[in-house]
Write a protein that binds this DNA or RNA. Sequence first.
DNA 1: TTTTGAGTTGTTCGA
DNA 2: GTCGAACAACTCAAA
Length: 468
Amino acid sequence: MRHGDRPWDTLAVMPRSVLWFRRDLRLADHPALSAAHELGDVVPLFVIDPVFVRTAGAPRLAHLAAVLRALDDEMGGALVYRHGDPVDVVPALAAELGVDHVFVTRDHGPYGRARDAEVATRLAADGRSLRGVGSNYLVDPGTVTKAVGSPYAVFTPFSKVWRPLAEARRASRPATPSVSDVSWVGAPTVRCDGPFDAVPVGVALPPATAAAAHEQWDAFVSDGLDDYDERRNLPGVPGTSRLSPALRWGVLHPAQLADDLGPSRSHDVFLSELAWREFYADVLLRRPDTARVNLNPKMDVMVVDTDAAARVRFERWATGTTGYPIVDAGMRQLVATGWMHNRVRMITGSFLVKDLHLPWQWGARHFMRHLVDGDLASNSHGWQWVAGTGTDAAPYFRVFNPTGQSERFDPSGEYIRRWVPELADVPGGSVHQPGLLRPDAYPAPMVDHALERDEALVRYRSMGVPIR
DNA sequence: TTTTGAGTTGTTCGA
DNA sequence: GTCGAACAACTCAAA
């Protein structure tokens, strides 16, 4: 928008508030929207924050752009985009519009909380307010505590407290105003431009519209959810909902998924996965530094490799040329599509930490750059779980065997053949055996798993301190 | 107050 | 091939 160009002056109605969208890119089941709507006409805003654009890979940006386009369409093209640091942009827009309130869904991440605190301060200096309503979770991070008030560091006790709270949240939520009831006050002269328009889209992205996400969920509920317990671990079959990107951006709220869950074992396992997401958000809220450092400080003395040779090993891992088919398949699926099956996230993660002896932070950063569903809390603590530095109560000697995992969870080799095309002709189960595969076309295993497993155990034992 | 038992996702070895 | 033990020892709630 050019300086001095004030489209608001020509509007027939005066907006009463701004709804600043961040990770809540939907119109249904949206408490902040409901609250804003009660005050009157709403200006919907999305701020293109250079901090995000800088750190996000192409599929991530492309998916976000598609989601925003879909949301904008639902609002009849009213969505207002602004570029820049929200700390400057949001108070400036509120002043320009003369609105007293900026509504948001509360953000519980380290960056989001610091940003929102600063925005709130700036708005308050002007006599305006930032009003946080609702969250992207069934239970707000920070609510689940032990009897003494301290947070949980182990999942199972957390989830026992979480479940009834989640059910209460699911059962009681504000009515969603119908889209036609909301008076969006947009500005047609303010277009989405800049980095988003230049995003190359060469991969199949997750559903961007709320309708498509709901359709995908309904399809999963009718065909998949009942077998979730068994099939979720098989990367070669569509046994998961694949809705993590929709949850990441708030195209769906987890309450909408929980609505359809019953008492069966498989449904319960799915609810547990939602609980894990909320557990990790809770841990990161209470320990914002654990996106970078070990949750368990006793693990800080653990020796990891960071020299030039380590960087070379990291490159082979990142490019999917380790010579371990299941690892390479996963790493290539990640880069090609912006998504990786969860079972394979664990296998590739374990390989980076325990076979290559690299810092989990290197793997976490790579995942965050590429994952369309990349969520700081789930990603950081998923990695810490694999590395044995985080919330896992199990001892350190749990080391994944990439070949064994491959044989167990991709027995037919279907997943491997899909993502490692040079092995497409290798028949049946022989596709799991590294070192015996097309030596002309496929790399030999870069390390010997048995040796590196021993090396990892030696390093853990040599810390000379209790593990926890 | 102290003790006890279970804890997302594992592997290997030896009987 | 299947099965239990060993790996080694923290957190948390219930008894």
